[in-house]
């Protein structure tokens, strides 16, 4: 098996990298893929919390690269899906505890036993970012429709290109279609015009994300979560399916919305 290493990054913090990693990983696992999620935010780990696997951590990524344990021992098996694993970050060390070279070796080792290796990148452009992108084949840039987020995404795309990751794809997160309609929020076209990269998907702002994050259950499991449905479609696109970018119209009459809900549930 020759797995694909995808780094999920954004530059700016709080735009939903970790949520995106957890949901895409889970969605891919739901499609019977073997997936491992790597949390590279050493010192500020929280992918394990979002996945609800915090209480199972024994070893972490720093233990693995330092040879304190075997890679297999540090991988935590997900409680819901067969074939979904998490390699947690260390909480007590800092980002310099791992080098880009070690990350490369680690991801290369994981390639042999997984279809997808999703790397959750820390915010910023320093050591943690360099580690996270070291072994990646592909990059997904997450941005919210805010000027600051788009600015940072632009910077990150430049750095990714400089590192040889030439075709990063974009996920626009937390889009509020009502605000876009009123002209109070940047729309998808504005963002694409500035960033000029391929759009992988659009995730609407959704309260269920907060609930599911707090519960430690990715929203993709919930059938009636709009964000979860968006992540499921993105996962299908990552698998190479041709799924059109949905129009995020949450107005419309009751019948339409009901029909849409039924469609999402399927």
């Amino acid at each position: 098996m020759k797995g694909k290493v995808i780094v999920i990054t954004s530059g700016k913090g709080g735009v939903g990298k970790t949520t995106t990693t957890a949901n895409l990983g889970t969605a891919l696992a739901m499609m019977n893929q073997k997936v491992v999620l790597i949390d590279t935010d050493i010192g500020l780990r929280n992918l394990d919390v979002v996945m609800g696997l915090e209480n199972r951590i024994v070893f972490d990524i720093v233990d693995v690269v330092n040879g304190n344990c075997k890679l297999k021992q540090a991988l935590i098996k997900d409680k819901r899906f067969e074939g979904l694993y998490l390699l947690p970050a260390a909480q007590t060390k800092d980002k310099s505890a791992v080098s880009p070279h070690q990350m490369k070796n680690l991801t290369n080792e994981l390639r042999n036993s997984f279809d997808f290796i999703l790397v959750d990148c820390p915010a910023g452009i320093e050591q943690g970012f360099k580690n996270a992108i070291a072994g990646a084949d592909d990059a997904i840039v997450v941005a919210t429709p805010e000027v600051s987020s788009v600015r940072d995404a632009d910077r990150i795309i430049g750095l990714l290109e400089a590192a040889g990751l030439n075709n990063p794809r974009l996920i626009i997160n937390r889009l509020r279609s009502k605000m876009v309609k009123r002209g109070d929020m940047m729309d998808i076209g504005d963002i694409i015009e500035i960033l000029s990269i391929e759009l992988l998907g659009v995730v609407p702002e959704d309260e269920t994300i907060v609930i599911s994050t707090n519960k430690g259950e990715p929203a993709v499991i919930e059938n009636n979560s709009r964000a979860g449905a968006a992540y499921r479609r993105i996962a299908r696109r990552i698998m190479g399916e041709n799924v059109p970018i949905e129009s995020l119209d949450d107005t419309g009459n009751l019948v339409d919305r009901f029909r849409k809900m039924l469609k999402l549930a399927r």
Partner: peptide, 23 residues
């Protein structure tokens, strides 16, 4: 395209076939 954080300098003229983004 020149993206945020990227910089270009030349002693003479500069012609850019692309966008120059904020930053």
């Amino acid at each position: 395209n020149l993206r945020s954080g990227q910089k270009c300098f030349a002693r003479g003229n500069i012609v850019i076939l692309g966008d120059v983004n904020p930053g």
